[in-house]
Amino acid sequence: MANTVKNKLFVHTHHIGSHFTNGLTPIASLLVTLYFITGDRDFERASFYCIVLAMVAIPPVFFSGFLDWLTRFQGRPTHIFNHKRLFGVLFMLVSILLVVWRIMRPDVATEASTLRYIYLAMIYVDTGFATYLGYLGGKFI
């Protein structure tokens, strides 16, 4: 009984949290794209806040998913779970890197340098990770 409650807690934390990360990351992409099109810095700032919120949500999502895999799926290392783990770690790392970079260099997306395109590309890559993880998660529904 206690195990069932614990398992349900992991599943629900994972499902609820992953909607935050999967919702916020594409919005961050959209907002930073709007900044590049319009030049309005508010879009870039809003994009950064979305990445911060997604980054905060990733660790509980990752660890609840990991514990759910260990309990409900007995830790079986199949293709889907291996990819979920690998891309989950990459998603977390790129998000942390983006936030740290933007905090240390607030003008990274706005100054005229090639770095702004790397920053932009990283947000798109992060969105790719979130999309792929959402696709893998959808296989369980």
Binding site: T4, R72, F73, R76, T78, I80, K139, F140
Partner: peptide, 20 residues
């Protein structure tokens, strides 16, 4: 074989949850 195993690994908890 791995694909078949994966399908079963995903399906088994569903049966258990339906039972509950």
């Amino acid at each position: 074989l791995e694909r078949k195993i994966e399908a079963l690994v995903i399906a088994i908890p569903r049966e258990s949850e339906s039972y509950d």
